[in-house]
């Protein structure tokens, strides 16, 4: 549509004032935005309640789309399955034969583990999950990586709880609302997770890059021992994340670490598990030194 032919307000004082005030309001809106930004940098927790309430309101829509998302994914994978059925079948048979052998070995290891644990007198430390739920929405248009959980205070979700999928770590709870919670995904630039290489325990930190990959920063500098295909798991140091959760696989080695791909891609995850925060066992109490007079 063409712009209004005559934008001048003429001699009408009323028209002049209303135009002036609407432009003033526009500029005031921009300035208010600047003020809000400064406030959110200085006091980020101020808008937590507002955001949580908004997420609660939008949660039903998120739940509905989460279901259709899963259904849509199924349709695509079914169609794709027809095209690669033969080769996939052969590969699966081969893997199954290997897996059967591994399973027997794993059972033997498990039995032995149980026996050894009994010898040591350690009870199995595996607290049940707090909630099993869906990720309903995410910030797909921003470089910050947040997602919304379909469970909040009503299911006992609290700040700092790690969220994982069957494939590995997804993130941790950041803000909790009544029926929803905001999750900081591990691919966010603010997320820092202590990890170690699965096979030999080389310690490192995993920090998000912002585009869905993770940067592995080695703690001990010097010769970079990483190779493409190395798998990193959480190390559990510092608490919060339980040790041994699968995290990422190295795709590209850099001079001081590596770039890794996340194993638990949140877009492929149907259900996620909220776990209680992991607390490392406290150090043994030191014996008070007896006074020697």
């Amino acid at each position: 549509m063409a712009p209004p032919p005559n934008r001048r307000t003429g001699y009408s004082r009323r028209a002049q004032y209303s135009t002036f005030f609407s432009y003033s309001a526009g500029v005031a809106g921009a300035l208010l935005g600047l003020v809000l930004l400064i406030v959110s940098f200085v006091q980020p927790s101020l808008f937590t309640g507002l955001r949580a309430a908004a997420a609660d309101v939008a949660a039903p829509a998120g739940r509905a789309t989460a279901t259709t998302r899963a259904a849509g994914k199924d349709i695509f994978s079914t169609v794709a399955g027809y095209f690669k059925a033969g080769s996939e079948h052969a590969r699966l048979e081969r893997e199954l034969a290997e897996a059967k052998v591994r399973l027997v070995q794993a059972q033997a290891t498990e039995v032995e583990n149980r026996r050894l644990k009994l010898l040591l007198g350690i009870a199995a430390q595996d607290p049940g999950p707090v909630a099993v739920t869906r990720l309903t929405s995410s910030t797909a248009a921003s470089t910050r990586r947040f997602a919304t959980l379909a469970a909040g205070q009503d299911k006992g979700v609290a700040n700092g709880m790690p969220v994982r999928s069957p494939m590995g770590l997804v993130g941790r709870v950041l803000e909790v609302g009544a029926t929803s919670a905001r999750v900081l995904l591990i691919t966010d630039t603010e997320s820092l997770v202590p990890v170690r290489r699965a096979k030999d325990g080389v310690p490192a930190f995993a920090q998000g890059v912002g585009d869905g990959t993770i940067r592995i920063k080695l703690i001990s500098l010097g010769l970079n021992p990483l190779k493409t295909g190395d798998v990193f798991v959480t190390s559990g140091s510092g608490g919060l994340y339980r040790p041994g959760m699968a995290m990422a696989v190295v795709t590209q080695v850099t001079h001081d670490g590596a770039i890794a791909r996340v194993l638990a891609n949140p877009s492929d995850t149907d259900y996620v598990i909220v776990e209680p925060p992991f607390a490392p066992p406290p150090p043994p109490a030191t014996e008070p030194v007896p006074d020697t007079k």
């Binding site: 995410s138 797909a140 990586r145 996340v262």
Partner: peptide, 13 residues
């Protein structure tokens, strides 16, 4: 954008 997919990067407009 939030409802369409759980994105691991900024991909949606």
């Amino acid at each position: 954008p939030g409802l369409l997919l759980i994105a691991s990067g900024p991909v949606l407009p």
